[in-house]
Design a protein around this nucleic acid. Structure first.
Lengths: 141, 141
DNA sequence: CTCATTGTATTAATTCAATAATACAAGATG
DNA sequence: CATCTTGTATTATTGAATTAATACAATGAG
């Protein structure tokens, strides 16, 4: 489990763990069914308190990324239901609304925000996405 | 100065002040040159510590929304240069990148985010913007 | 059954942002 | 000049979030 923790950036350790694991799952470096390192093992590897890793795992479970089987370990969830899609959309909608609100406070129009989004998106490396959900036919925004 | 402060939502008081004043400027309810209430006056009106208002004013100045003239009071900045546009774009770019990053972690594609942005934007009330900058001919994202 | 290993729970220490108390500095105003 | 009003600076208090110390509970392996 290759994780890079830094204490100098002000980002909580448990969040760094959560984000990096989320990313690994989304990018396919971790697959559904994969076993996660036990809390204590990862804690020792990262030189971090086990409770901190426990918290990260708790958040990951709440986000539907992993599932815990009590004394049998922690596993990457089956790709099918990593947090209901509606919930994901709801969360992203909040972010989008906040973004639009901030832009409005700056006197920047919605169209310009859209333009900016396109611009930043095209800068990204070719979406190395897992293609877990090729079927969007029933999607509703 | 009609501001509504709530202590129950977890949003810092100084931020509520900052956001609401930014909004009033962006929406035209406050105009360049308008004099802001003195720190102590606004503090008393909001039943808040003067330092809290002072902090809000400091942030507003840093954001280019107001300018302070030492002992002569605080005034809404001339619309021309409320924080350099490049700086605004830089800040918004950070927000956009964070949004795209979170979406990627959820396994949601860029295209879907763009779709979501369009959707949320069209829900908004007809951009009651000040139209301070009708000329975007030289804009670069 | 025994016990090693897994996650859980409780509580405390620490850190940091937000707010407040209070005194200061400087320019406007008469 | 005298003094009132403006924003500023310094320091303390508070409270929430993060991390840590430690003990507990459950279950799979032998």
């Amino acid at each position: 489990m290759q994780l890079h923790i830094t204490t100098s950036e002000g980002v909580p350790i448990y969040l760094q763990i959560v984000n990096q694991i989320k990313y690994m799952v989304a990018s396919g470096r971790l697959s559904p069914g994969d076993e996660m390192p036990p809390i204590r093992v990862l804690a020792e590897q990262l030189v971090v308190n086990p409770n901190t890793v426990a918290r990260a795992y708790r958040e990951l479970e709440a986000a539907g990324v992993v599932e815990k089987r009590r004394t049998a370990g922690t596993y990457v969830s089956d790709g099918g239901s990593p947090l209901a899609r509606k919930e994901q959309i709801r969360i992203l909608s909040e972010r989008v609304d906040a973004l639009l609100s901030e832009a409005r406070q700056m006197g920047i129009s919605v169209d310009e925000v859209i333009e900016l989004l396109h611009s930043r998106a095209s800068d990204l490396s070719p979406t190395s996405n897992n293609e877990i959900r090729p079927d969007k036919s029933q999607d509703t925004l």
